[in-house]
């Protein structure tokens, strides 16, 4: 078993200006093809951690390594590295002034300088796969929340990232739209996409994850396979957290 390690953090620390410690000595590694789900209560630092992986936020100390390269936020290659680490956010972050197709093509054409006709074909294939091939020429505001998030995923995939970061991508959706988005993520996982996912959907986490990380107060409290974690959590904090999703009949 020789699995390539693709992303690695060592002792990441980060505090807010008010002194609140949001990341506390996080050491983490991700293998190629692996799907890691991070769960935990609100404010536990999981979203911040994800954004630090993509260098959208600076860390106070510690290193982030992508393959063999140490990532430095001040360095110019940060723009190049971000293309390899795609990200989808919680809020619908499509660009409102562009059509769906232009949203998807903007970065491949402007950043990666690829031929528009070539990427357009790829975009149409991907849109077809997520069931949105008839939406190429409409504007984001004409789409439902679930449709927008599927487009956002396609937009991230178009950059051919080696890792995809998903930050609570269904948290702002109406319940009936959650499934259509998560279905797309499940398929990506099946195809071997390397992903780090922050979510509150426990059933989905159990289905998609190779490994689960439970974070609380900036610390990774518990780590394990989904079966181990969901069936027999080891720590008291994890048990309490999981119980919040559990309702007893009277």
């Amino acid at each position: 078993m020789n699995v390539e390690e693709i992303l690695k953090t060592e002792q990441l620390n980060k505090s807010y200006e008010n002194g609140l410690k949001v990341l506390n000595d996080i050491t983490f590694s991700l293998k190629k093809g692996e799907v890691v789900v991070i769960i935990g209560p609100s404010g536990c630092g999981k979203s911040t951690f994800l954004r630090c992986l993509n260098m959208l936020e600076p860390v106070d100390s510690g290193t982030i390594r992508f393959k063999d390269r140490v990532i430095d936020r001040a360095n110019k290659d940060v723009y190049e590295l971000r293309q390899k680490i795609g990200m989808v956010f919680q809020s619908y972050d499509l660009f409102p002034h562009l059509t769906i197709l232009d949203n998807i093509l903007l970065a491949p054409v402007k950043v990666q300088k690829r031929e528009r006709s070539e990427v357009a074909k790829e975009a149409e294939d991907l849109l077809k796969r997520v069931g949105l091939s008839d939406k190429t020429n409409v504007y984001p505001r004409q789409l439902s929340g679930g449709q927008k998030q599927r487009v956002a995923i396609v937009r991230a995939l178009m950059m051919h990232p080696e890792i995809l970061l998903l930050d609570e991508i269904t948290a702002a959706l109406d319940p009936e739209m959650v499934r259509e988005v998560l279905q797309v993520v499940l398929e990506l996982a099946r195809e071997g996409m390397t992903m780090v996912i922050v979510t509150h959907e426990m059933e989905f986490a159990r289905a998609v994850a190779d490994r689960v990380l439970f974070m609380d107060q900036g610390v990774v409290v518990e780590e394990g396979s989904p079966e181990e974690f969901f069936n027999s959590p080891q720590t008291e904090r994890a048990k309490q957290f999981l119980n919040m999703f559990h309702y007893e009949a009277r």
Binding site: Q83, M87, S91, L106, K110, V111, Q112
Partner: peptide, 23 residues
């Protein structure tokens, strides 16, 4: 303009100038 618009741009690999110019 919401901060997410800037962040989405950066996450797609745009630099500061690109984010302003295109987004």
């Amino acid at each position: 303009i919401p901060v997410h618009q800037y962040q989405s741009g950066y996450a797609l690999g745009f630099g500061k100038i690109g984010v302003y110019r295109h987004i």
